[in-house]
Nucleic acid binder design. Structure first.
Lengths: 188, 188
DNA sequence: GTCTATATGGGGATAGAC
DNA sequence: GTCTATCCCCATATAGAC
């Protein structure tokens, strides 16, 4: 783990802390302490904190692509693939209840600040939306695939938001079940 | 407008700026500049920034109660009341696309920071959820009223999150239409 | 590549004059 | 009630030794 190059360790730790505390609320000192480097060392690897954010977003993008490829590989049917997506809410429940959705929360934060990296963050949502649309199209919902994808994405986001606000695992379980039922006959 | 007492003006301006920029990212200097008082004057009216946050959350709570009472007064049927709630997404669309939902985003921010005022923020969600549950019960969905309420709240939140991320008014319009259709026969 | 030391600015908060 | 002046801490970022 700690045999990785420093630049990588910075980006990975920043990823975690940005998720848990938010971008603005995470100081370089926090990251430096976590991986036991000096604050000065930072600027050998990155020009600025914003550049670290860029690297983090690039990482999350790549990890999202990889995740979708795994869903693709591990499920024979489009229905199974969509279901795998929905079940992120279950498998990642503990984190979501504490810190919200990693994509949704960074988009919200960067959006409020009108941060230049805003668009890169939303791109990850686009990635998910487009992949979901492909699955719905494969299921036969060709005409409404895009809308169904956005609809499901929105519902997942809403569940994540309320999960964090109410800290209620039962709510998540119920809503995932509702989504599963909806998936048997997805309509708008 | 500016004839209000300073303490009130601080709380109202803080409310706006906390919404637009986030709590942590709004400095007391920002607020002071907006209403043209000195930074020092602050501490005559509030002991700390956190105390201002407390006042803001109390205000939002009260405004939410008032809003629900208006919905109640202006609509004869439970269906109409729920519909009024849904249409916040339309009437407040411009703000939501820029800054997200005022309740959802503060809950998210305070949640990440494990801030003491977390619970007060979630309370506003509870307010909405309980009111919606009453409406669903009045519609005849007594057994599932609570779940329907949380479900609708989650869907609204999801729409707000994606509206901010994608900046797409059409998406909001489509999803509001979908919600309206769902309301004619709300199921889980 | 990594460190220490430091520059510079901004944050919340306090003291005390008016 | 409001102001100015100031304290202290922590933030990002830089300079330069090792």
């Amino acid at each position: 783990m700690s045999r990785q190059p420093t630049k990588t360790r910075i980006a990975e730790t920043a990823d975690t802390l940005f998720y848990q505390r938010g971008y603005a609320q995470t100081s370089l000192a926090d990251i430096a302490q976590e991986i036991e480097i000096s604050r000065g060392n930072f600027y050998y690897h990155f020009k600025s904190k914003d550049e670290i954010l860029g690297a983090v977003l690039k990482n999350r993008h790549a990890k999202t692509v990889a995740m979708l490829e795994t869903f693709q590989a591990e499920n024979d049917t489009a229905a199974g693939r969509i279901s795998a997506f929905v079940h992120i809410l279950t498998s990642n429940q503990a984190n979501i209840m504490q810190f919200g959705c990693p994509v949704g929360t960074i988009c919200g934060e960067l959006g409020k600040l009108a941060h230049p990296a805003r668009a890169e963050a939303s791109e990850i949502f686009s990635l998910l939306s487009e992949w979901l649309a492909e699955q719905f199209a494969a299921l036969g919902y060709v005409a409404t695939a895009d809308d169904l994808a956005m609809h499901l994405l929105a519902r997942s986001q809403g569940i994540a938001t309320l999960a964090q606000a109410f800290q209620d695992p039962e709510f998540v379980a119920k809503e995932v079940a509702v989504l599963e039922r909806w998936l048997t006959n997805p309509t708008l």
